[in-house]
C-alpha cells in the first residue's frame, strides 16, 4: 500500500509540473528548455524554509513566489528573443541555475539539502494534497483554455506579429504565462522536496528539463488531458518496471525522437487523427 501511495504522489507532482510547462509552451507557444530551474528554485525555497522551522503548507507560497519572480525575469527575456534563440536562452537559464546553486555553501553546494522535515500530513494526506493541487491546476488550465484568455494564447502561439496587429498586448500575456507557469513549477518543486526529502543540484539539471518537456510533447503540446496522461504515465514507468530503470534515459530519448518523427502532435494528435479516420 505504501508503495502505491508513493507512486500516486510521484504521478501527481509530475502532472502538476508538466502542466505548468504546458501553460508556457503549449498555451503561449514559448518553448522552454530550462523549466527544471524553476522547479528547483521552488524546491530549494521550500526546503530551506522547512529546515528553518516553517510549517510545510506555509513554505509552498514563497516557493511559488520565488520561482514566479525568477520566471518573470526570464519572461522579459522572451520579449527580447524568439523561437530558437529563446529555447537556447532558457536552456542557458537552466545551466546558470545549477551552476550557481552548486557553488553556494548556504544551499548545501554539491551535496544539496538532506533531512528535510516531514510535512505532518501523513503519507496519505500528502498524496491527497498533491493530487488535489494537480487537479486544481488542471481545472484552472481547462478554465483558461475556454475563456477569452485561451483564445488570446491560441492567437499568440499561432503568430505573435499578427496578434500584435489585431490589438492583443502580446508582451503582457507572455509575461503572465511565464509568471503563472513558473510559479506553479515552484509549487511542484516544493512538493517534490517534501516528497523525497533530499534535494541536490543534479535533480534540477538539463535532463530534468528535457524529461518534463518530453511529457508535454509526448502528451501533445497544448492538450491538457494528453499532457496530464503522459506525465502520469512517464513518471511511473521507470518505477513500475524496475529493469527499465537502466534504460530509462534511452527510452525517453527514443520516445521523444519517435514522437516528433512520426506524430509531432503527440498522443493528443494521434487520438485526434484516429478519430478523424474512423
Amino acid at each position: 500500500m505504501a508503495y502505491e501511495i508513493t507512486l500516486l504522489t510521484t504521478m501527481a507532482i509530475s502532472v502538476l509540473f508538466a502542466l505548468s510547462l504546458n501553460f508556457i509552451s503549449g498555451f503561449c507557444g514559448q518553448i522552454s528548455l530550462g523549466h527544471a530551474a524553476f522547479y528547483g528554485a521552488g524546491a530549494y525555497t521550500s526546503a530551506m524554509l522547512a529546515k528553518a522551522g516553517a510549517p510545510f503548507l506555509l513554505t509552498l507560497l514563497p516557493a511559488g513566489l520565488v520561482a514566479g519572480a525568477i520566471g518573470l525575469i526570464v519572461g522579459f527575456a522572451s520579449l527580447r528573443v524568439r523561437h530558437d534563440f529563446l529555447a537556447i536562452t532558457t536552456m542557458g537559464v537552466g545551466f546558470l541555475f545549477i551552476g550557481l546553486v552548486r557553488q553556494q555553501d548556504v544551499l548545501g553546494g554539491e551535496l544539496g539539502i538532506s533531512a528535510i522535515p516531514s510535512t505532518g500530513l501523513g503519507k496519505i494526506g500528502f498524496m491527497a494534497f498533491a493530487m488535489g493541487l494537480a487537479a486544481l491546476f488542471a481545472g484552472f488550465c481547462v478554465y483558461v483554455k475556454r475563456s477569452w484568455m485561451g483564445f488570446v494564447y491560441d492567437s499568440i502561439a499561432d503568430n505573435e506579429d499578427v496578434s500584435e496587429i489585431i490589438g492583443i498586448p502580446v508582451s503582457r500575456y507572455k509575461l503572465i504565462a511565464f509568471a503563472i507557469g513558473t510559479a506553479v513549477a515552484g509549487v511542484a518543486g516544493g512538493l517534490y522536496a517534501h516528497h523525497v526529502r533530499f534535494i541536490a543540484p543534479d535533480s534540477f539539471g538539463f535532463v530534468e528539463s528535457v524529461t518534463v518537456l518530453a511529457m508535454v510533447i509526448v502528451g501533445g503540446i497544448g492538450s491538457i488531458w494528453g499532457v496530464a496522461f503522459a506525465a502520469a504515465f512517464l513518471s511511473v514507468l521507470p518505477l513500475w518496471f524496475q529493469p527499465i530503470d537502466d534504460f530509462k534515459i534511452l527510452l525517453y530519448g527514443a520516445l521523444l525522437f519517435a514522437m516528433m518523427r512520426f506524430s509531432p502532435g503527440g498522443l493528443a494528435g494521434l487520438v485526434a487523427r484516429l478519430r478523424g479516420v474512423s
Partner: peptide, 21 residues
C-alpha cells in the same frame, strides 16, 4: 516542414538516446 521545435526536440531525443547507446 514542421515548426522549429519539432526537429529540435527530435534531435535532443536522438542525442540523449545516443549517449546511452
Amino acid at each position: 516542414g514542421s515548426p522549429p521545435f519539432v526537429p529540435l526536440i527530435a534531435s535532443i531525443g536522438l542525442f540523449i538516446a545516443s549517449e546511452e547507446l
